[in-house]
């Protein structure tokens, strides 16, 4: 998330991580989740599901902050988000701090 001005406590706030689950065969390809994901985690895939629709696919799972918007807006109950527990596999990320992202990429 980009701010025009960094919040004063940005360095102390840890962004939660989210684990996006897509039930591909239930999807009807409306694209609401792809359009409105605030972190651009999703993209329409080129694959077909069992019903012949293009379900979304995860392109950047690390960007997800578990906001749950995809889960709320999906009319098909086909996508949901679970919070990742902070652990060694999931190094905590700090909002609006460019250094943290570079460190994470290493």
């Amino acid at each position: 998330m980009r701010y025009w001005r960094d919040p004063l406590d940005a360095g102390q706030i840890e962004a939660p991580g989210g684990d996006v689950h897509i039930l591909a065969d239930r999807c009807k390809g409306c694209g609401f989740c792809v359009e409105y994901c605030p972190r651009q985690v999703l993209e329409m895939s080129r694959e077909f599901n069992r019903k012949g629709y293009h379900p979304p696919e995860i392109v950047d799972s690390r960007a997800c902050v578990n906001c749950g918007l995809c889960e709320m807006i999906c009319p098909e109950f086909a996508i949901f988000c679970l919070e990742l527990a902070a652990s060694t596999e999931n190094p905590s990320r700090v909002l609006a701090s460019p250094g943290a992202e570079a460190e994470e990429a290493r």
């Binding site: 009807k28 409306c30 009319p75 098909e76 109950f77």
Partner: peptide, 24 residues
């Protein structure tokens, strides 16, 4: 899905058209 306890999952997927807003 986390909402599954509130839904009759044996009837899902529902009949509403792709990109209809009723499911939301």
């Amino acid at each position: 899905h986390p909402s599954a306890p509130l839904l009759r999952m044996e009837r899902i997927p529902h009949v509403w058209c792709p990109s209809c807003g009723i499911g939301t």
